[in-house]
Design a protein around this nucleic acid. Structure first.
Lengths: 112, 112
DNA sequence: AAAACATATGTTAGTATGTACATATGAATT
DNA sequence: AATTCATATGTACATACTAACATATGTTTT
């Protein structure tokens, strides 16, 4: 009468919650691209918008989220605001995920 | 009159979309735990529910999602359905994220 | 100090996601 | 073959996200 499942370790609740937030934050194409390009180069808000074809307010909103989680920081240069990566470690997750995506695309596509 | 931002590589659209889906799928505490425990041991639906304190239908719904993305597979044993990890690579992303979460929790908490 | 520029923030509407409950399927037991 | 057990699936509601638009803030230029 044993369902098994003893001796199994779980993710701690606080870790789980934090991980969930991080992943939710990353699961957006605009923010993924932003982190990806900001790792390569410091960029102004308008430059980001042009590169990614996004409206100004959309870019700002996304950057606000990334700022809140301290994944990026910014400095003012004249009127412009330049952003750069603040957390190199987050990029590991991004690149790992892109690699995974690449594997999936090469191999087994998951159907409807 | 140059915003800079030349010579910057972007994530390809299809990779981006795939990555987004994967991350969305992972950004859920129940599914994270499921992947985490299924890496340790094959488990039945009811065992998963007991371990994670989740209702049967909730577990099934989540498993259906994981199945759709071929992160888990299942085999029937009598009445029970046993699930196991189908994609070990996905665990790299999970553990990397948990580690990141741990760093965040130790160090800099991100405010409201 | 007014105008123009760059960015940030508030608000709203459409859409997606998660959970709960009800029902269906499919296997084993009697 | 009817009942029970384990799991799956359908549906509805409440919540969360994203993008669009409007407006506000802060800086430079004239």
């Amino acid at each position: 009468m044993n369902n098994l499942g003893d001796n199994i370790s779980l993710i701690e609740k606080r870790h789980l919650k934090e991980a969930e937030q991080i992943l939710k934050l990353l699961s957006n194409p605009a923010r993924l691209q932003m982190l990806y390009i900001l790792e390569q180069q410091e960029l102004s808000v308008s430059a980001i918008g042009e590169l990614l074809n996004l409206e100004q307010s959309v870019v700002s909103h996304h950057l606000a989220i990334l700022r809140k989680f301290q994944l990026v920081n910014n400095k003012r240069v004249g009127k412009a605001m330049f952003y750069r990566l603040d957390d190199p470690h987050i990029l590991d997750i991004v690149t790992e995920t892109i690699e995974h995506a690449d594997h999936v695309l090469r191999g087994k596509p998951h159907g409807k």
